[in-house]
Write a protein that binds this DNA or RNA. Structure first.
Lengths: 344, 344
DNA sequence: CTGAAAGCGCTTACAG
DNA sequence: CTGAAAGCGCTTACAG
């Protein structure tokens, strides 16, 4: 149905191999021949058949990106980064959304093997990486995204969550806050645990006399309602015993702000609130939210670059881990501790 | 590097063709042979090489999905629908994010041609479809998403925006509202124009004596701030002359609610507010938002099904358009018109 | 029901 | 610098 290299060769009056050379080693072709062939290519609208090319050369220039939930903006932005890196390098990416299901993940992995992808970028849905080893054994490059590559021969990219926690704490500390609530989720969520660790480490690093006091309160669900419920209960028959809250994520922060305002406390005059994730809505909220942003796009871009580097140089590629730093985004929900609340 | 069909044939003690038949026409293989081959396949971990398969059979079972902005939840959910449909059918999809750029779109289209995709699902970045004709001419199936296929031999899927507007109006009408503000964007946005048309048509359909009165107010930016600014100005030295607002989207609705509450009006007691899009945050808002939702997932699923149908049956496929109905999601921001506000 | 053979479109040594 | 030839891994009539 389509134009083949044979048609181009005929039209340009050269052999098959010469046309191929024009695409793969243009330096090895005489300039006049090059021009002739390029004209024929343009005239016929020839695009080399990737399947044939792959079959012969063994390289597909196709990558697979496997994510647990593409509706999560984290993965959406990440996937944009992957796509941009990949497009620049002449690669293509097959996106696989596992919906956090191991079965779907396995299925997609098979699909990717069948498609002869040269590399797989993945945020695994489960802790066990057994299904990934099969991929690596097939010689397919593996890049772990937002996970570490423990026990795997693979590159990985991630964000320094401990640092994210520390950033939040330091920001509040610099604003003068010394009584801080940590309103977060269960410790079995790795990210939650890691950030908490970062907060505590930052506190431990301070001179004992100046260390802020941290009260940890856990919500069942890291949602607006989950936060409201818990915080309302906490404030029930107690006076405010903190001047700032570090929240597990932005939804929790929004819920906290709502509760505080309902109780007649102003944010940030009475209480500063800091979120995590920097979701899209953070800047449109009633009180624009100070938050910790993750370099999602860069994460994807870097992961794709690692994967492509491995594809281009499978022999002497050394695996590496790239860890990005989260970023503090200051908006209206945090401010200096006021004399009023300090006194309270 | 990999296990080939030849290895399987050898291990199972059958010929090449028989192994192929096991994959492509299992009915034509004797049960005992089938089992022998399947065992060999499992033992060796054989996965057929898609490139070779494609090259020979001419079918790649690969689709391209080209969207202007994957960070927009509309396209994210849509892409989930596409992926699920595609996975079920044993296809694979290459996701292309054009960032609304025509150049990127053209580049991706070339990439997709080179990858031998069998079909392209696209929400074009520009109005002219000239670059799409080239795709169609190559025999690649084309499916327009959230656009009509005027001037193209192609299937298309979309949402009935006029109906969306009508739904919003009718909901408020049934709650007794007769003085309604339409707070929306510029009419050169097709979706805005179409919804407005639907609202007006719905009003025109009512008996003249009962027709609600519609005041249209336009915002520069369909954002929270854009809405606040315009509405504050409108309410400056005027009493409330409406009991409900239909908003251009959910962000506008959130801004409207904020302004109303700041002025001391309760939502929905004094004023009902309805949004559009049903963004994720709509249900977590201070006043959970009544909104018009679009069947994004279904849109993608249906588009993929159309595309696959065309791939499977390129000869006698008739192009069709599938138009989905938007859906009213009732939450707390709308309620019956109160006697108080009615009297005002 | 099974096997031998041709060929999909390209790349890559290799000889000239 | 150019061309003829082999072969990547599979599918598909075709003969048996």
């Amino acid at each position: 149905m389509s134009v083949s290299i044979r048609d181009v060769a005929q039209k340009a009056g050269v052999s098959l191999g010469t046309v191929s050379n024009v695409f793969n080693r243009p330096d090895a072709v005489a300039p006049s021949t090059l021009k002739k062939v390029q004209k024929a290519v343009a005239d016929l609208g020839f695009v080399p058949n990737a399947s044939a090319r792959t079959l012969r050369a063994g390289k597909t220039r196709v990558l697979g990106l496997v994510v647990p939930d593409i509706s999560n903006p984290f993965f959406t932005d990440l996937s944009k980064g992957v796509n941009d890196a990949v497009l620049a390098a002449g690669y293509v990416v097959i996106l696989c959304n596992t919906d956090e299901s191991s079965e779907k993940e396995d299925k997609y992995l098979d699909v990717l093997v069948a498609q002869n992808v040269q590399g797989v970028l993945i945020t695994p849905a489960r802790d066990s990486y057994s299904n990934l080893k099969a991929i690596a054994d097939r010689g397919i490059g593996l890049t772990l995204v937002d996970r570490s590559a423990i026990g795997l021969e693979a590159c990985s990219v991630g964000v320094d969550d401990a640092q994210g926690g520390a950033l939040a704490l330091q920001h509040l500390y610099e604003l003068g806050h010394r009584d801080i609530m940590l309103l977060t989720g269960a410790t079995n969520i790795p990210q939650v645990a890691e950030r908490e660790k970062g907060i505590k480490a930052a506190i431990a690093d301070m001179p004992a006399s100046k260390r802020p006091h941290l009260t940890t309160v856990r919500v069942d669900a890291m949602s607006t309602y989950g936060a409201q419920e818990v915080l309302e209960k906490y404030l029930k028959d107690k006076k405010l015993d903190f001047t700032a809250i570090i929240c597990g994520n932005d939804l929790v922060a929004l819920g906290a702000i709502r509760t505080l305002r309902a109780k007649g406390y102003d944010v940030p005059t009475d209480v500063s609130v800091i979120g995590y994730d920097d979701i899209d809505f953070a800047q449109s909220a009633t009180v624009p939210l100070t938050s910790i942003a993750q370099p999602k796009y860069q994460l994807g871009f870097a992961a794709a670059e690692l994967a492509i580097a491995e594809c281009e140089n499978p022999g002497k590629h050394t695996h590496q881990r790239i860890e990005f730093q989260p970023q503090l985004i200051v908006r209206g929900s945090t401010g200096p501790v006021s004399k009023k609340s300090k006194g309270a």
